[in-house]
Nucleic acid binder design. Structure first.
Length: 306
RNA sequence: GCCGAGAUAGCUCAGUGGUAGAGCGCGGCCCUGAAAAGGCCGGCGUGGGGGGUCCGAUUCCCUCUCUCGGCA
């Protein structure tokens, strides 16, 4: 029996993955699974450029608007949810088409998640308190003592990772650097195709800037204002636009500045995404031109699949 | 046309007689339970053109060009 096929469509924010994906999905009898860490949240539609309900009627989208923005979400949950949906699609005879720009989520599906422990609130609070009192250097030395392997890979200022490594050690007595070696990916059991969309940097940045302009036209301000009435989870509040608009609502700067920051942070984000994707040799890149329509892009993608 | 100010990084500008910095922008990279997050690295330059003084000029002098004010 041939291996079941899973397709990924990756690419930087704003490049036009979603629109092309819908057309591609139609052609290949696929349903779309979002590979995006922010589109899972409800009430964040304009902010995350989620597919419209009209688009969603054309092709079923999974893992969109699944979680309330007051709740936490993370890679492990994503993996669990996404694999479940994959199985469901296979039973229906559909091909899963993962679409998104969250490189870690992609990697976690394809390369696997090493068996570790979930976050532990109590341990974290303690560690964070210690970090505050003793400073980065001391904290880093602490990690160096218990897990030199991890310390070698983590910069002393990257306290978020240091906390995680220590958390794993305190919880399990094992080194995260050792655990990380045990990951089992999907490659053996499935036929995985990975497509990437790219556009020259200047035009990509133009698109990103324009997309932010568009968000404002569509009513971003009231959407975010509404969102801020809730106590957003730590993860949900990381979406680009929330912090930036909050500064405007708090009268720290004018609206134009909020928009400028959103555009800049989105550009930086796209750049980081490209860095992440660049080193992944499994990605088959499809270069698009500035003015290509979603249908044209979808056609190029489709050709790349055969 | 005259008077004044200026011309230094992609932009805004600082500074110095011993071949230049800052902020923003931009580029590169790392990444496993917060990943649209978090962290690291990089000045990316014919100092407007030409001449002079000097051991040595981006810095001082002359000149040309351009820009911005003001006066005509």
């Amino acid at each position: 029996m041939p291996k079941k096929k899973i397709i990924f469509l990756l690419g930087p924010t704003g490049i036009g993955k979603s629109a092309a994906a819908i057309i591609l999905a139609k052609k290949i009898n696929a349903e779309i699974i979002s590979c995006d860490s922010m589109q899972v949240y409800r009430k964040m539609n304009i902010l995350t450029s989620k597919a419209s309900s009209a688009q969603r009627k054309k092709i079923k989208h999974h893992l969109l608007s699944k979680i309330d923005p007051t709740r936490e979400y993370n890679v492990a949950k994503y993996r669990q949810d996404a694999l479940l949906i994959c199985e469901k699609l296979f039973r229906k005879g559909k091909t899963p088409l993962f679409v998104g720009g969250t490189g870690l989520y992609y990697s976690i599906i394809v390369d696997g998640l090493f068996p570790a422990v979930p976050q532990d609130k109590a341990i974290r609070t303690k560690l964070e308190k210690q970090l505050k009192q003793k400073g980065n250097k001391y904290f880093y030395r602490k990690l160096l003592k218990v897990d030199a392997g991890a310390a070698g890979k983590i910069h002393p200022n990257d306290t978020r990772r240091i906390i995680r490594a220590l958390e794993v050690y305190l919880k399990t007595g094992e080194c995260i650097s050792q655990l990380q070696k045990n990951r089992v990916g999907l490659g053996k059991d499935y036929n995985i195709k990975v497509l990437g969309l790219n556009l020259d940097r200047q035009h990509l940045y133009d698109r990103i800037n324009q997309r932010v302009d568009k968000m404002f036209e569509l009513g971003l301000i009231s959407e975010v204002k509404r969102l801020l009435k809730y106590k957003l989870s730590q993860t949900a509040q990381c979406a680009i636009g929330i912090r930036e608009l909050k500064g405007y609502f708090d009268a720290n700067y004018p609206l134009a500045e909020a928009k400028r920051l959103m555009q800049r942070n989105s550009r930086h984000y796209a750049k980081r995404q490209l860095t992440w994707f660049r080193k992944d040799k499994r990605i088959k890149w499809v270069d698009i031109k500035q003015k290509e329509s979603p249908a044209q892009v979808a056609l190029k993608l489709w050709k790349k699949l055969s």
